[in-house]
Nucleic acid binder design. Sequence first.
RNA 1: GCCGGAGUGGCGGAAUAGGCAGACGCACCGGACUUAAAAUCCGGCGGUUCGUGAGAACUGUACCGGUUCGACCCCGGUCUCCGGUACCA
Length: 826
Amino acid sequence: MNEKYNFIEIEKKWQRKWEADGLFKTPDDTDREKYYILEMFPYPSGKLHMGHVRNYSIGDVASRYLRMKGYNVLHPMGWDAFGLPAENAAIKNGIHPDVWTKENMAEMRSQLKELGLNYDWDREVATCTPEYYKWTQWIFIQFFKHGLAYKKKNPVNFCPSCETVLANEQVVDGVCDRCGTPVGKKDLDQWYLKITDYAGKLLDDIEGLSDWPNKVKVMQQNWIGRSYGAEVQFKIEGSEKLLDIFTTRPDTLFGVTYMVLAPEHPLLSELVSGTEYEAKVEEFKDKLQYLSDIDRTSTTLEKDGLFIGRHAINPLNGALVPIYIANYVLMDYGTGAIMAVPAHDTRDFDFAKKYDIEIIPVIDPHNDEIDLENLSEAFVAEGTMINSGAFDGLSNKEGMKKITEFIEKEGFGKATTNYRLRDWLISRQRYWGTPIPMVYCENCGWQPVPEHELPVLLPTDVKFTGKGESPLTTSESFKETVCPICGEKATREIDTMDTFLDSSWYFLRYADPKNSQRIFDKEKVNYWMPVDQYIGGVEHAILHLLYARFFTKFLYDIGEAPTSEPFKRLLTQGMVLKDGKKMSKSVGNVVSPEEIISKYGADTARLFILFASPPEKELEWSDEGVEGSYRFITRVYRLAQRLYDVVVFTPDDAAMELVSEGDKVLNRALNLAVKKVGADIGERYNFNTAISAIMELVNAINKYRDDDGANAALLKRSVCTLITILSPFTPHVCEEIWAEYGHSTSILDEAWPSYDESALLLDTEEIAVQINGKLKAKLVVPSGVGADELVSLALSDEEVSGLVSGKEIVKKIGVPGRLVNFVVKG
RNA sequence: GCCGGAGUGGCGGAAUAGGCAGACGCACCGGACUUAAAAUCCGGCGGUUCGUGAGAACUGUACCGGUUCGACCCCGGUCUCCGGUACCA
């Protein structure tokens, strides 16, 4: 073997050989049990960062392990390749987005290969290729055909810097998710996907995702946000119109003292037109328009409102209550109007105090500390109904049911469910995205492009100015077309799709990535889906994962996808930090993967990043830690060198008799490591403890190696097993050692070793002796003795009997293999 | 505010089912090898107190309390930090 651990040479050599041998290709071998393991595909931004290295190392170790376990493993990689940075680069540097993107893909692909990741590159997909986006367009058309894609004019979130609209989900704290610019409102005609039709299913099915982190499930539940309640119609005094409100608290209907409309409410102008309030209302609306989203949604914003001169009639008791408009009522939730119950709602309470509106308590908390007639804050908890006519005396929970039944019977309302989730705005006024395959005809309206004409190709004669509407308008050839229905002149949709659509189905395409006839072959998808293990950053907990679930459910409903949930098991890995902060250029704490790979090699980079922290947790980068991982690999390499003769000159079938205690100790360490590493990779996904188990095995072998009368067969088996179970983590160096040991096939094609449970027991074991629960002594006993025998063994021990002598033993507890505990008095 | 999670040596972390807290690694300290350094190897390493010493006693998993023979783990309360969400009626 080579003297030195030359990682540069070793890693290059094996990467070339793996590629030449096609080692990572996945057969559609439907006879074997499949395992589909997937990491979230990257945006080709230029270079890999440490987050990628972490994400993909986790997937690589798991997939290598599963393959060695005998599964037919699908482990693909691709590119989420549409998006704004490419277009910005085009504007700035004059490079076409396609060129820029493909250069980045090439660079990052070679970086992924330099990490030794076992991807089947034959299945690579890139969302920006016509072969792929053809099917994204096809899905859009299916949505349209099923009434789930529609165009509507609406005030939408608009990022003035990106010059495009944004989905609700892409506005974070009032600023653009991508560039951080405060988002404004613009009235635009835009395409939406009716994800709200799936709100119930998306929410209900979360329960079945038993192998998802609870955290992600809760985030999705909150995001979808279901509320049960009632819609109630109030008559408006002096008007034929009814005011429809949504409430989750029908039990408080008798406590309504005013009503509030959102300032954008469609009924408003009619209610005030020609009255003295009209001018003031307009002024109020104007004032609100100037507020940015940040201010508008800030909780510190003071409640502000205006009486509009009209009154509504409470359908339960006929009470006349004033109608207001206010900044705290949103048009796009519920009905855009509320009934206000200041006694039992904190927001209504604040507002009522400010405008001196009556407060009527209708729920009695039975609490002396609360003065109902003179509330200092809203009482929002449970209680008994009062001031509520025939409903007095009921618990408010019962009241909720009874009042809802009553309003349904009387015909002025009904029980309803409301979701926080809004429809998904998918139009983007950008070039580098999937063209929306729709055509507008004066006669026939919006029509989908016929499916046999797909894909609608992105035009190449486009100017990138970064200004105005979609760049697609600058194409001479693109816009003009004919109507697929009547054949008259028509125009194409010039907006492109939100890139989240592209990534909402890519995992299905990997099953059959080259199919040009269909979106994918059903049999192949049936075999591979669902994704057994999905791995990616927690930042995708809501958007990507929700959209991917939505697409899968839709494709399932139209008979294309075999499962209604895409991802069986989910692992959200933590961020990579340096000095306690997220690595970022502006902070200047970025450690580049390139740097680490060239200094220590890919094996070290992988090993460190998996060893430093369990996958879900944040990982603090440590240069010293990297050194440590490198040292460990060199230690293994040296050990393998020293045992070279033992390995090659000991026949495989040499008898392995365990004679000495040392033999048994090493054999135990060996079996323990196999057991623990398998469980830690396969079940727990705790790679850090798997690696420490391997380190313990290395220490055990090193300790044993120089013993007199060392057992060659045992040593050989130990070191070969060590290399095998280490190989998923550091594949290059292990492959090198494996080959040096005389193997002509890849270690990846070795079967994962099994272990012998009986080898885990030594002849004797150490038992803790506690007195009153405190550790007082240790006792060596034969392995496997039962509880009673353990107690008597302990009592017959000289030291222990000394400890309890003269005291009354009240209780004796024995726990086999662990401890005995004596409860004593005196 | 609401929802979720976390809090263990100087540091990253371990303890998988209520049973010896601190595995494994980093840093540090001491020793061997070396002319020397690096590398490597061996040993030590939660705290306090006592002891010349091998060692001993006490204490210790954010804090207070509870359940239990026994609690990092379960229960009640408090604090701090992180993440999500935020006028959703």
